[in-house]
Amino acid sequence: MNQIIERDPADPKKKEDINPLLKLALELGPLVVFFFANARGESLVESWPALGSFGGPIFLATGLFMVATAISLSVSWLLTRSLPMMPLVSGVVVFVFGALTLWLQDDVFIKMKPTIVNTLFGSVLLGGLFFGKALLGYVFDSAFKLDAEGWRKLTFRWGLFFFFLAVANEIVWRNFSTDFWVAFKVWGIMPITLVFTFSQMPLIMRHSLEDKPAE
């Protein structure tokens, strides 16, 4: 009999859904703030001299990125009384590496943040498969109903994709300018992720349980 991987059974409460457009805004908002602050850092400092205490544009962008991330997580919590695991983990890394970036005035830390986060997610997903757990089902179960084989395949592909993102980030920040890295982080990673996500739809359709009779 096919099995569906469900959310934590210890949590009896159904999590309320967020409007998809609002969810997208909460996820992309901090990145847009990061890009805008880095691109317009000097103008922002001219308008609000106090912002100059952060340092150069990348440090100002890092500080505002941390603030925007905190606001995003807070709004998500207020609306659903829960925090999605992936944004929460990413937020924690943002705060830790952002703080190191500002304290040491070294942008290497914030540039390494995507590498750390994506490597962590990839390791968790592939490590879960090693122990027989398709952990992606806990993240996407509210969006898709797949059989066990579908969750295993999708988890494996996303695990590899996270490692690809980690490698891509390392290549870009180590070989290109800071401005190019910021632009790639905001306007490159998202389209790549969307293309990858849509490329998985055939697999999702093949293993979807919604169109299959219960066994």
Rank of each mutant, 00 (worst) to 15 (best):
N2W: 01
Q3K: 11
I4H: 04
I5W: 04
D8N: 15
D8P: 00
A10W: 07
A10P: 01
A10T: 08
A10K: 14
P12F: 09
K14M: 11
K14G: 10
K15P: 04
K15I: 09
E16V: 04
D17W: 06
I18F: 07
N19Q: 10
N19A: 12
P20L: 05
L21D: 02
L21E: 04
K23T: 05
L24H: 02
L28N: 09
L28F: 13
G29P: 13
L31F: 15
V33H: 11
F35E: 01
F36Y: 12
A37H: 00
N38G: 05
G41E: 06
V45P: 09
V45A: 08
E46F: 06
S47T: 14
S47L: 14
L51N: 08
L51W: 05
L51V: 07
G52T: 03
F54D: 01
G55A: 00
F59Y: 09
T62P: 00
G63P: 05
L64C: 04
F65C: 09
F65H: 14
V67W: 08
A68C: 10
A68R: 10
A70L: 11
S74Q: 02
S74G: 04
S74C: 12
S76F: 13
L79E: 03
L79D: 03
T80N: 07
T80W: 02
S82A: 06
S82C: 00
P87S: 09
G91A: 08
G91Q: 01
V93M: 13
F97D: 00
G98M: 00
T101R: 01
L102Q: 11
W103N: 07
L104E: 15
Q105Y: 10
D106V: 03
D107L: 09
D107T: 07
D107R: 12
I110M: 07
I110L: 02
K111T: 06
P114V: 10
T115S: 12
V117F: 15
L120Q: 08
G122N: 12
L126F: 07
L126Q: 15
G127N: 13
G128T: 01
G132R: 08
G132A: 08
A134E: 03
L136G: 03
Y138M: 07
Y138D: 05
Y138F: 05
D141N: 08
D141C: 04
S142V: 02
S142Y: 03
A143P: 02
F144N: 03
D147R: 04
E149T: 06
F156D: 03
W158H: 15
W158S: 10
G159A: 10
F161N: 02
F162N: 12
F162C: 06
F163Y: 15
F164E: 00
L165C: 04
L165I: 09
L165H: 04
A168K: 06
A168E: 06
N169D: 12
N169Q: 08
N169A: 13
I171Y: 14
V172Q: 09
F176W: 14
S177A: 05
W181P: 01
W181A: 05
K185D: 15
K185C: 08
W187Q: 01
W187E: 00
G188R: 12
P191K: 11
I192T: 14
I192N: 05
I192K: 00
T193I: 14
T197V: 11
S199P: 00
M201I: 15
L203A: 07
I204D: 06
M205S: 03
L209V: 14
E210I: 13
E210C: 01
D211G: 04
K212H: 14
P213E: 14
